[in-house]
Structures are given as C-alpha cells and as structure tokens.
Simulated scan of single mutants.
Amino acid sequence: MSETRKADEPLAVAAWAVHVPGLTAADLPGSPDEPACTPDDAKDVLGRKGLLGKEPSTRLALCAVHRALGLPPGKLAEPLPYAPGTAVVVASNLGNVETVCTVLDDMRERGGTAVSPLDAPNASSNVIASSLAIKYGFNGPNLAVCSGATAGLDAVRLARLLILGGRAERAVVVGVEPADPIASALSGLRTGESGALVGGAGVVLLGRPGAWPWETGITCGPVVRSTERPEAAAPALADAAGGEFYGAAGVVRLAAAAATLNAAADPAAAPSYTVGCGDADDGYLTVSVGRAAERAADRTPVGAGSAS
C-alpha cells in the first residue's frame, strides 16, 4: 500500500454512472443514452446468472457499477485486473427494508422455518456492498453506510479515508435507494422533506491518479460539513422527477456533476461544482468536484454513464 496522504488531497474521479429506471442522459447527466432498465430487466445489463433472489436496490447498484466500469452486457468474461485492493462503500438507508419487514412478518406468523433461504442474506444491511464485491472480485474493505440524508457523501468521505490512509488503492462508491411501498412510506415520514422517494443508483470510482487504468482529469476534494442547506450546483443536477434520492443523493449528484463537467466543450465554462446532500435533521455535507484545464490525453471511454 502507498504511504498515507494529506487529508485535503484531491482524488481522481475515474468514472461514474447514474441508473434511474426510465431516465436517460437527457434527463439526468450520467444516465445511459437509452432509458435505464428497471430492476426486473437487470438481466439486459448483467446477464441472468446470479440475479435470483437479488433485491431491486442490489440490482440497481449492480447495473450502475457495471456501466461505470465500461463492461459489455452480460457476465464477466474474465477477472478484473484492478479488482485487488479495491474497496466498496455503499450508501443506502432503505435498500433492504422491504425484506427485513417481510422476514419479520413471516417469523412472527409462521416461525423461523418460514423464512426463504433466498431472503435471509438480504436481511443484512451490507448485502448490497457484499454482492458488488463478490460479483466483481473487489477484495478491499467493504462498508455499508446508513446515516440518513448525508449517507451518500458520508460514503465518499469514508472512501477517501480508506484510500488516503493506505487501506485501499481505489474505491467503488455507490448510493442507491429503492422505491418500494415500504421504503417510500418510511421516507415520507421524514420531517420537513417533500417529494416522493426515487428509486435509483449512482456510482463514482475514486482513487489517486493512476490507480484506475484510465483518467478523466476530474477530481473531488474533501467532504465538508455545512450548517446550511447547500444550493443546487446546477438545474441539470437536480433530483429526478420532482422526487429525491434520500441516502443516495450525494453519490447521484456527484456522478451527475462529473458527467456534466466531462461533457463540457470548454473546461473554463464549467470549472467546478459544489455538490451537497443532507437535511435539517441529519445536517449537510458538501464536496467540490472540478475538471482540469486540459483533458487527459489517454482518456478511455468508460461505460454509457460516462460521457466521452
């Protein structure tokens, strides 16, 4: 592992993707050119193998990561050369809440033997992060963040600590929430918040320069706590369909900002954005994402979620 780095050192944003069913890049930067598939159609991106028993939030996260890595549809043809030393940090407050409620209801009504072996693993709050690590072979630290409205940028902050502290070479940071009836009802109980919960995922690949086998020239700085609600970076980065992403918001917005910066014809026209998330109860976090004046000469297109 590399030596510990300065806490304020910017990290490279090597790739990104946003996956909100039905939305395209025209609706939300970082999304695919064609409407993003639903969890039921995740086989179109991932192939059929390994999806049995996977919850909608896990399927959405897998689709977003698959696209951010620039992988062709279907199962992996060979191990990923950059998987060793790669951490996975997932932000999701409600990702498995439907399964937890279902398992508890089944146990109360019919006993423990009524719980399906396919449902039991999904009762773990770390099921999304572990599913990503198993599918792609990431053997670095594996974390789940369930810290409320700041979860997305809390995940970015933890990924920075892992990388700058020498615990991981690079990190896959995911924010994902489902939109099932139970998750939507729980999200609706939050005080002072409006807008329906939007099911979707965002992912950013972070690391020091050279940690990933491609460069974009986009970096993000340290995560900063704020006492006031941050202003939206730009109208194009607002949450989708009049709703909100709750714990996934920080990562979705960071991915959308990176996609917007990468697509800008003139780097000086959009030098940086400040991305924020949070609410009055959980507080607010912000992170700055910027683009170098000169694009990397060896930029390799990375997935449909990353505008080339």
Rank of each mutant, 00 (worst) to 15 (best):
P21N: 09
G22N: 14
L23Y: 03
A25V: 12
A25Q: 10
A26M: 08
A26D: 13
A26H: 12
G30T: 02
G30F: 03
S31Y: 01
D33N: 00
D33L: 15
E34N: 02
E34P: 07
A36W: 06
T38K: 14
T38V: 10
T38Y: 06
P39Y: 12
D40M: 09
D40C: 08
D41E: 09
A42Q: 13
A42P: 11
A42G: 11
K43F: 14
D44P: 03
V45H: 01
L46F: 14
R48F: 08
G50E: 13
L51M: 03
E55I: 11
P56C: 04
P56Q: 05
P56F: 13
T58H: 06
R59D: 04
L60N: 03
A61M: 07
A61F: 06
L62V: 10
L62Q: 11
C63T: 12
A64N: 03
A64S: 13
A64G: 02
A64H: 02
V65Y: 02
R67K: 00
R67F: 01
L69G: 04
G70Y: 04
L71P: 03
P73D: 12
P73R: 11
P73Y: 04
L76I: 15
A77N: 14
A77S: 13
P79G: 10
L80H: 11
P81Y: 00
Y82I: 07
Y82G: 02
Y82H: 12
P84N: 07
